[in-house]
Design a protein around this nucleic acid. Structure first.
Lengths: 194, 194
DNA sequence: ACAAATCTGGTACGTTAGTGCCAGATTTGG
DNA sequence: CCAAATCTGGCACTAACGTACCAGATTTGT
């Protein structure tokens, strides 16, 4: 169901943002009617009034979060200074786009990105959305490589992304996972001039 | 709790195998007391009698399944004929070890392997077990490359595994996911003589 | 053979979940 | 300004879950 009144639209949006927050904090499974309502400060029934099902709510939350991340990526592209694209800084930029900006608790944030990827396998209704966002991310990276004076083919972009993703999922089983460090190592090696 | 009588041990084992079957068919979340008991043809309470908690049962199921897969890998190594390790056949062998033997419904089986990887992030108690199995798999691949007359460094093994894993997780968001094909493409390219 | 240990299986409790219901309040459009 | 559309929010239903309980059956060790 979609809102028809301004206030309704605001409430609906509040629910989406609350759901996106839960997604970031606790993963897909944390998005539940009661949790979303409580976080948004709204009654339980508002979640079923504005969303036909929980899947709808999950979809809206993922779209909201995905768009926010893509906007972040575009901002990084716009402010990119081709002169300061030294090896390490550039690797870090690519990691920021693929894993999110570095933070002190980024293992958690990175885990979430990959839960999303894998969860798509069990939630086919998310595939079209994930497809679109993944495509935009690929294009963004393609543009960034070009802008940084290191143009690569779209195929190569896919390879590098796969390398990072694989490094991350393998790092998740470490006792003290540091997926970003693992990805940094592999990406740095793969991008070295040969 | 561990069984102390032969019959008890048999029942316990039946529960583990039932749980492993559920793991294969429906993922971690499919392992539930009632489902396991029903699949094993045993009463609900037997699951709490032989396993202190559901986590214990999940751990046992993962270990059972992991050992079965490692045994399969070792068998493939033992029967490996160095003379018939042409490019395509060898790539397929590596895929068999990393993704499981090829089947008509292997997108499902592959998905499960990667759910395991990612789920470890939210289930720290599985990490030691996953660590051990991952290590054995790496060693197995290392041996297989050597046996096939294409020795590589352990570091290179990690790279190739990451490449396959990354290709897989990215393939999962396709409309009709074929993770094996995606992995085959990337691995084939990475292993081409340069 | 018999006491102790182990196992059995039906039952029930407490939570949490998704979702449906509906009388009343609010907002909208003409 | 008022009828119609929209929204509100408290409540309750059903289902599924992990887990605990316990009287009785079975198996074990001596």
């Amino acid at each position: 169901m979609t809102a028809a009144t301004p206030k309704g639209e605001r409430r609906r949006q509040a629910l989406v943002e609350a759901a996106a927050g839960l997604l970031v904090d606790g993963g897909f499974d944390a998005i539940r009617h009661r949790a979303v309502a409580e976080r948004a400060g709204l009654p339980l029934a508002s979640t079923t009034y504005y969303f036909d099902s929980l899947d709808d709510l999950v979809t809206a939350a993922l779209e909201f979060q995905g768009n926010a991340e893509l906007a972040y990526g575009k901002a990084r592209l716009d402010e990119l200074d081709p002169r300061e694209c030294g090896g390490d800084a550039f690797v870090e930029l690519v990691l920021d786009l693929l894993l999110g900006p570095s933070g002190d608790r980024d293992a958690e944030a990175v885990l979430l990105r990959y839960e999303r990827l894998v969860a798509t396998g069990r939630r086919p209704y998310l595939r079209p959305l994930m497809r679109r966002m993944s495509g935009e991310l690929h294009s963004l990276l393609f543009d960034i490589f070009a802008r940084a004076g290191q143009p690569v083919s779209r195929e190569r972009v896919e390879e590098l992304i796969a390398l990072v993703d694989g490094a991350v999922v393998n790092a998740l089983i470490e006792i003290s996972p540091d997926p970003r460090a693992a990805a940094r190592r592999m990406l740095g090696k793969a991008m070295q001039p040969r």
